[in-house]
Amino acid sequence: MHTVAEVSLKYSSQKSYDEMPIITSPEEAAQFLRSIWDTDTIELREEFYIVLLSNTKQVLGYSKISTGTMTGTLVQPITVFQTAILGNANSILVCHNHPSGNLKASGADIQLSKRLRDAGKLLGIEVVDHIVLTKESFTSIKECGLF
């Protein structure tokens, strides 16, 4: 007889729903992201975060998915959605920074947004936006009509 590992999933929120911020606009998203971002690294290297949202767009939590270089970071959709599923998210907000201060979404940014959007549709987890954050400002890739 073979012994295999048992897999179990657990989720426990540290705060009540009433204490969790609600994100319904790119401006609210940027404000929340600035509250969790390490300001000492925003101009140093690209990082990619996801914010887990409930069906009422309340923040359930967030996770740093990857840290890269001055010009890019690698993001695997499987890691993004593994985190979303384990965190019991109904939808997600994704974000990365541009250390250069350039607010324009790159071709790779747009392609990743579409890939995540399509994967989310299959799983029933909406990608509500992809924010590009800089030290001074932000861009909503969705609001620009790019995904």
Rank of each mutant, 00 (worst) to 15 (best):
I23Y: 01
G72H: 14
V132P: 00
T67N: 13
I23N: 08
S35M: 03
V59L: 03
V7S: 07
D109K: 15
G68K: 15
I125Y: 01
E19T: 00
T71S: 15
E43W: 14
V132M: 14
D118M: 11
V4Y: 06
L133F: 13
Q76A: 06
A29D: 11
V128D: 14
F147L: 14
T3I: 09
A105M: 08
T139N: 10
S137F: 14
C95I: 04
A119V: 13
V59C: 12
T41G: 03
K104C: 09
V94D: 13
N55D: 15
A119H: 06
T24Y: 07
N90I: 05
H2S: 09
A89K: 12
R117M: 08
V51P: 01
Q58Y: 10
I131D: 13
M70F: 15
K121Y: 12
G72C: 12
E47Q: 14
I92F: 00
F138T: 02
M20S: 02
T73H: 15
C144W: 11
R34D: 10
T139C: 10
F147T: 04
D18T: 05
L74E: 15
E19L: 05
T3C: 05
I125E: 04
L86T: 10
P99K: 00
L86S: 11
A5P: 09
N55H: 11
K64E: 07
I141D: 08
Q82H: 06
V80Y: 03
R34G: 02
Q111I: 14
S63I: 12
E143R: 06
N55S: 13
V128S: 15
Y11T: 05
V7Q: 07
G72V: 10
E43A: 14
L133V: 08
V59P: 06
Y11A: 07
E47H: 09
Q31Y: 09
S106R: 10
M20A: 07
M20G: 01
K15M: 01
S106Y: 02
Y17T: 04
L122N: 15
S140G: 02
T24R: 09
I131V: 02
A108G: 10
L86Q: 14
G145A: 00
G87R: 05
L74K: 12
R117N: 15
S12R: 06
V59Y: 05
T39Y: 05
T56H: 10
M20H: 01
L9D: 04
G120R: 12
Q76S: 09
G72F: 15
N97M: 03
L53V: 01
R115M: 15
N97F: 00
S137Y: 12
S63D: 08
E27C: 05
S91D: 12
A89G: 08
V94E: 13
L74T: 14
E47P: 03
S91A: 15
V7K: 12
I23H: 04
I85L: 11
P26M: 13
E28M: 06
G72Y: 14
H98S: 05
L116D: 00
V128I: 14
A119L: 07
D40F: 05
G124C: 02
K64N: 05
